[in-house]
Design a protein around this nucleic acid. Structure first.
Lengths: 209, 209
DNA sequence: TTATTTTATGAATGATGATTCATTTATCAT
DNA sequence: ATGATAAATGAATCATCATTCATAAAATAA
């Protein structure tokens, strides 16, 4: 029998991320992806059942990773609420750091999966948003966060702000240096989340920005 | 000569907003839009040169309106920085309030225009983001906002957070009541933007949430 | 009424591009 | 080597619409 030459599945994913980022899902043609991966058009279909399924695969692994690292941070009982936020932001940016096109696809193409009500995607998405909500609720119980915040609305705002900043960074890394973004997000969100009475507490100043 | 029966241009726009919101730009077929507007397929092309141009028209008028109302607020010298923020948030939500599908299109389809580098769109978008940046800078000069904030990054985060919350609201208005969203956004952003030393100042508490 | 012009129609056109499949190529076991 | 099987190819297929256009309908003016 003939052996597979190299990891074509990985090559297709990598190529698709680039092409989806540049041209958008519909602008991206299968032959663009195949060209980019250095294979023939038909070969794509030996590894994926459809163009759609390539996108699904990309989102699935992104969410799996993001969810896992967030879960680890949030379940770590030795970290305080504010430290956890710090770590979460770092985890998100670290994940996309070496792959700006992935960030573009992640932000720009999500609505397609929402529209198709893709279960794989919806599952991870809901779990992750739920995790952030739980984190906010626990922070309130711990008196780290203001008791008046609404975990559902706050988590969506933060998630949305992060997404958008990630996209801007992916478009132009020079104008939006990652370290600056991290610092700003932490500052903006924390100073809003942290109860005003705790603004100058030791816990707050302990975190190194 | 024959007279036009009713405002078909407006009917097309209205129908397109609904269909784009539900199916996305590519899922939306011209005959869907025509059906929804109560006209024949070909008639669409008497009013718009292409499907793309319908989307452009929608974005152009949305940005024109949003820009105008923000400009009025920000240039109003009788308002303080914090009052202005209050008004800006209200203006955005008031604009989309009666039209959830418009909010969905506005959030979900923006990247298409960015990708095509649509000049009409880019012009208004840049002007509006620039306006928000100027507003933040002036707030810093007025000592209303913390001097350490980065106007470019902060304005993008806020814009992104707003967009995302708007989308959630459009999907499910019951779970995300508009008044709750307004209140939360104002709280989160202001408590982050306002210099810590001013947290309990009169100006801050004067604003009715 | 009838000619003229504008508006509207929806079936036909034509381009596009995802997917398929008949064919070829490489590898291995015998 | 030779047959058998897995991998890979890329031209052909086929369905899907955006757009066009020949035709009809409505309104007005003469």
């Amino acid at each position: 029998m003939r052996k597979k030459e190299g990891d074509k599945q990985a090559a297709i994913i990598e190529a698709a991320i680039k092409v989806f980022a540049q041209l958008g899902f519909h602008g991206a043609k299968i032959y663009h992806i195949a060209d980019n991966a250095g294979i023939a058009t038909g070969t794509v279909y030996l590894y994926f059942s459809s163009k759609e399924s390539i996108l699904e695969n990309i989102f699935e692994s992104a969410w799996k990773q993001l969810f896992k690292s967030m879960e680890t941070i949030i379940n770590n009982t030795s970290l305080g609420s504010i430290e956890k936020f710090d770590f979460i932001i770092n985890a998100v940016f670290d994940y996309f750091n070496s792959n700006p096109p992935l960030a573009m696809v992640f932000v720009n193409e999500q609505h397609r999966l929402v529209q198709k009500d893709n279960q794989q995607f919806t599952g991870f998405y809901n779990k992750t948003i739920g995790l952030i909500e739980r984190y906010l609720r626990e922070g309130i119980l711990d008196k780290a966060f203001d008791s008046s915040i609404d975990p559902v609305i706050y988590s969506n705002f933060i998630f949305g702000g992060l997404r958008y900043l990630l996209l801007q960074w992916a478009h132009d890394q020079k104008s939006y240096p990652l370290d600056m973004i991290r610092k700003c997000v932490k500052n903006l969100v924390l100073s809003g989340i942290v109860g005003k009475n705790l603004t100058n507490s030791v816990a707050f100043n302990d975190v190194a920005f």
